[in-house]
């Protein structure tokens, strides 16, 4: 029963099963890539799941030109990069103050921030909307960047806090003896030592900001500020008949994530697992 042969067959069954499951998980994505290069007659019957007979790159040009996907893409890049920068800077500063400095209310501030992990983003939607409307800021990049940064902060601080534990306090003390003030210690010791965990924070924040829909769809009505998720929603709503360019738009929105994933898949997996386990 537990002989080599039995085990060999068992492993083969499992391997085949994993391959089938891989197909289930990856098929929609494969299908998206192929239909982004087809025209309706192929998508609708002649060649539903095969590779395209004619590779119609013109679909991509249509998506960029008619669908304005290029503009949405740049908006998404801007919003995401700004969110990552604000989140990282705030998280680094706060982590240092929360873990290495000594002050009253430190514990309270820490538990307040941990509370933020459980608060759903839904809680903020109406109050933030009311405030933004009052200041006529609903159609702006900041309407998205500030809430995204706020909601990414709790996780970012959590990741940084667990990382800073590994930075020896002796380093700071040595720098202090050499005449470094608190700002010097922070800039010369803490920031360089924390560099490895910044990519984890950046990956987390990137995924959140790049894919967020609820805020983007309710706060932004001006097409100038639409991010990709909203842009795709509108594109698909108005061009229902022509599937090719829609597929192209979907690929354009997915491509950066997949490209980054190809080059740093293990780092990304590590980041996602690390953040969760600590939460």
């Amino acid at each position: 029963m537990h002989g080599k042969i039995g085990k060999g067959i068992g492993n083969k069954v499992i391997f085949v099963f994993l391959c089938i499951w891989a197909l289930v998980q990856i098929f929609p994505i494969y299908w998206m890539f192929t239909f982004s290069l087809k025209d309706n007659s192929e998508i609708f019957g002649k060649n539903m799941i095969g590779l395209p007979h004619v590779w119609r790159w013109s679909n991509y040009i249509d998506a960029l030109k008619v669908g304005n996907i290029g503009r949405y893409f740049l908006n998404s890049v801007f919003v995401t990069v700004a969110t990552i920068m604000i989140t990282t800077i705030c998280a680094l500063l706060a982590t240092y103050a929360l873990t290495r400095m000594e002050w009253k209310g430190q514990k309270l501030a820490n538990s307040l921030i941990m509370l933020g992990l459980t608060v759903p983003i839904h809680a903020a939607i109406l109050p933030v909307f009311i405030v933004l409307k009052k200041f006529h800021m609903t159609n702006s990049y900041w309407a998205l960047i500030i809430p995204y940064a706020a909601f990414a902060l709790a996780m970012a601080i959590l990741i940084c806090e667990s990382f800073i534990e590994g930075v020896p306090r002796e380093l700071e003390e040595a720098a202090c003896i050499d005449g470094c003030g608190v700002y010097g210690i922070f800039v010369r010791i803490i920031i360089p030592m924390m560099r490895p965990c910044l990519s984890t924070v950046a990956i987390f924040t990137f995924l959140q900001a790049w894919n967020e829909l609820m805020f983007a769809v309710t706060f932004i009505s001006d097409s100038k500020f639409r991010t990709l998720p909203v842009g795709i929603q509108t594109l698909c709503g108005s061009y229902t008949t022509d599937w090719g360019p829609i597929g192209a738009a979907l690929v354009i929105a997915t491509f950066p994530t997949l490209l980054i994933y190809c080059f740093m898949s293990e780092k990304i997996q590590e980041s996602m697992a690390a953040g969760a386990v600590k939460g």
Binding site: W21, A22, Q25, I26, P28, I29, W31, M32, L207, W210, N211, L213, L228, P229, I232, Q233, C236, I246, L250, A253, T254, T257, L258, Y261, S265, I268, Q269, M272
Partner: peptide, 18 residues
């Protein structure tokens, strides 16, 4: 592992439209 994890990374709007 890498393959099974891929759908998680893709925007929900893209998944939804697909």
């Amino acid at each position: 592992v890498a393959l099974f994890f891929t759908p998680v990374l893709i925007s929900t709007v893209v998944i939804g439209q697909l």
